[in-house]
C-alpha cells in the first residue's frame, strides 16, 4: 500500500516536471515569498555569514578583512575556552542527574490519578511560562545569603548559611535547580501525552498474565516511552548547553569563571568587546557540538511524525 502510494506520487512528480504550468508556479512562489524572504534574510544568510565571520576581522562599518584561522587560533589559545566547555559539560551532567528522571516519575504518578491528575500537570507547567529574567529576580532573593529563604530553611535543621551563588561548589547545582524548576513542566506534559496513548488493553493483558504494577511499568511503559525518553534527553542536552541568562544575570560568569559558558562568552566577546570574528569562531564551535545532537533530534522527531500520519 505504502509502496503503491509513493509510486503514484513519483509518477505525478514526473508528469509535473514534464510540463510546468508557469502561471500556477508564479502563484505558488508568491505565496512562499514572504516566508522565503524572511528566512533568507534573517536565518539562512546569517547562518552562512556566521561561518564567514569566523575567518574575518569584522568591522560593522564595512571593510572586514580575511584573517584565515586567526580567530580559531585565538579561541583555542584562550584557557577560557576549555573552562567554558567543561562548565557546560558539568551543567549538562548535573541537569541530567538532578532533573532528568523526575518528570518521568511525576508523569507516571499523575497518570495514575486519571482525571484528577490534570491540575498537577498545569501547576508543574506554570514556572515554564515565567520569563527567565523575572524568575531570576525571585531566585536571587531565595538564594540570598542573609534573610534568603533557603538559608532560613536550612537553619531550621542546623545547617549553617551558605553562599549559594558565590561558592564555586554550590553555584552550578543552584542554577540547575532553577533551570529544573523552570523546565520540567513541559517535559511532564509531553510524557503524560505519551502515557495516554498506551492502550489500556496492554496493561489488562499483562495483568491477566500475572504482571505486577512494577513489572508493567518495567516491561510495557518504559519500552514504549524509550524513543520519547531519548528525544527529551537530546533536547535537554541542547537546551542546557546554551545556558546564558542565569550566569549572565546572577553571577556574571563568576565566581572565578565557574559559570562562564560558551554562549555567555559569545555575548561578551561580540557585544561588550566588539570582537565579532572571535565570537563567531566560538559560535561555530558551539554549532559543531550542538549539530550532532540537534540533527539526531530532528531526524528522530520527523521520522516518528511520518510514521504516525
Amino acid at each position: 500500500m505504502k509502496i503503491a502510494l509513493s509510486r503514484r506520487t513519483t509518477l505525478k512528480q514526473r508528469q509535473a516536471r514534464r510540463r510546468i504550468n508557469w502561471r500556477a508556479q508564479i502563484t505558488a512562489f508568491l505565496f512562499l515569498l514572504p516566508a522565503l524572504l524572511a528566512l533568507t534574510t534573517f536565518t539562512w544568510y546569517p547562518m552562512v555569514k556566521a561561518v564567514g565571520y569566523s575567518f574575518q576581522k569584522v568591522k560593522l562599518a564595512g571593510g572586514s578583512t580575511w584573517v584565515g584561522l586567526d580567530n580559531y587560533r585565538r579561541m583555542l589559545g584562550n584557557p577560557l575556552f576549555y573552562t567554558a566547555w567543561s562548565n557546560v559539560l558539568e551543567f549538562t551532567i548535573l541537569s541530567i542527574v538532578l532533573g532528568f528522571v523526575i518528570p518521568i516519575i511525576v508523569a507516571l504518578m499523575i497518570n495514575e490519578l486519571r482525571r484528577m491528575g490534570g491540575i498537577f500537570g498545569l501547576i508543574a507547567y506554570l514556572p515554564t511560562l515565567i520569563p527567565v529574567t523575572i524568575a531570576l529576580l525571585v531566585w536571587r532573593q531565595l538564594y540570598a545569603p542573609e534573610g534568603g529563604f533557603i538559608n532560613s530553611l536550612l537553619a531550621q535543621v542546623g545547617i549553617p548559611a551558605q553562599l549559594w551563588l558565590q561558592n564555586p561548589l554550590l553555584v552550578k547545582p543552584a542554577m540547575i535547580v532553577i533551570m529544573t524548576w523552570a523546565g520540567i513542566g513541559g517535559t511532564i506534559l509531553i510524557y503524560l501525552a505519551a502515557l495516554k496513548e498506551i492502550p489500556q488493553e496492554l496493561y489488562e493483558a499483562a495483568q491477566l498474565d500475572g504482571f505486577s504494577v512494577w513489572q508493567r511499568i518495567q516491561y510495557i511503559v518504559l519500552p514504549l516511552l524509550a524513543s520519547r525518553i531519548a528525544m527529551l534527553l537530546i533536547l535537554q542536552i541542547i537546551f542546557v548547553s546554551q545556558v546564558f541568562a542565569e550566569p549572565q544575570l546572577l553571577t556574571q560568569g563568576g565566581p572565578a569563571n565557574h559559570t562562564i559558558t560558551p554562549v555567555l562568552e559569545i555575548y561578551r566577546t561580540a557585544f561588550d568587546r566588539g570582537d565579532y570574528g572571535l565570537a563567531s569562531a566560538w559560535s561555530v564551535s558551539l554549532l559543531l557540538v550542538l549539530a550532532v545532537f540537534s540533527i539526531t533530534y530532528v531526524r528522530l522527531s520527523f521520522r516518528k511524525d511520518e510514521a504516525s500520519s
Partner: peptide
C-alpha cells in the same frame, strides 16, 4: 536543526 544562538551575531 541549527540553534538560533549559532548565528545570533550575523543576525
Amino acid at each position: 536543526a541549527i540553534p538560533g544562538i549559532a548565528y545570533i551575531i550575523p543576525l
